[in-house]
Simulated assay, not measured.
Amino acid sequence: MEVRLSTLIMTWINFAIIILLLRHFFWNKLKGIIEERQNLINQKISKADEDAEKARMYLVKNEQILQSAKEEGKKITERQKEKGDKLYDEIVSNAKAEASSLKERASLEIEREKQKAEFEIKKQAIDLAVELSVKALSQKIDEETHRKLIGDFIAKVGM
């Protein structure tokens, strides 16, 4: 195989012409496409960095909100516990007051019944005394009859 110098020179010249033509017609377009692609990639990287920063900020903010919600939950729980304790104390106090009132009413009722019973006993004693007096006045009383009437009176009264 024989390489001719003229063919070699012509090949180099054709190659140079093709490069010049490609550079003239397509180089700026390729360079623009490459720059656009590079800009798009840079924008996406910037956007990803911004999104990552926003995500970190949201994470911190959400942690603060969560902590605040936990504290508020504790406060609400404590307030409800205090209300429950207060209601419990109030119910116990009302129950004690009601029990005391019932006890007092029962004592009053017992006292009334006692007075009523005493009154009835006195009334019966008076009735018996009157009855005894009537019997004594209607009969001639000697000492033995007198003792018998007193014995009957005591038996009826229950002394």
Rank of each mutant, 00 (worst) to 15 (best):
K83W: 05
L8C: 07
A55H: 00
A129R: 12
I65G: 02
A48L: 06
M10Y: 01
G73A: 14
V134R: 08
Q67W: 01
K114D: 02
G73N: 11
R112T: 04
L66S: 09
N94L: 14
E98L: 15
Q67T: 06
W27L: 04
G151I: 07
K31D: 13
Y88D: 14
A125S: 13
E90A: 10
A99W: 08
D152N: 14
K61A: 04
E143R: 08
K148P: 01
I110P: 00
G84Q: 12
K114R: 13
K156H: 03
K70I: 15
M10C: 05
G84E: 14
I91N: 06
E53D: 11
I34E: 03
A48P: 00
I17P: 06
V92Q: 13
L40N: 12
I110T: 07
E71W: 02
A48V: 03
F15G: 09
I126K: 10
L21E: 02
D142T: 14
I33E: 05
I41L: 14
W12L: 12
E53F: 12
E120H: 08
Y58I: 08
K44D: 05
N42W: 02
L8A: 11
K116P: 03
V157Q: 02
A155C: 01
W27S: 13
Y58C: 02
V157I: 15
F26Y: 00
K86P: 07
H24K: 07
E120G: 10
T11Y: 00
I19D: 09
K116F: 04
M159N: 08
I18C: 03
V3T: 15
I150Q: 11
E72W: 07
E82V: 05
E109K: 15
K47E: 15
M159W: 04
L8H: 15
M159A: 12
I18P: 00
A95E: 10
T11A: 08
K47W: 13
N62A: 03
Q80H: 09
I121R: 13
S107F: 03
W12P: 03
K122Q: 12
G151K: 15
N62C: 01
M57V: 06
E2R: 03
A125L: 07
K140P: 05
S138L: 00
E90Y: 11
D127W: 06
E120L: 13
G158C: 14
A16M: 04
N39P: 00
E109L: 14
A99G: 06
E104W: 07
K61E: 11
R79Q: 09
E78S: 13
M159T: 09
L20A: 00
I9L: 12
M57L: 10
A136C: 11
K31S: 11
E131V: 03
A106V: 02
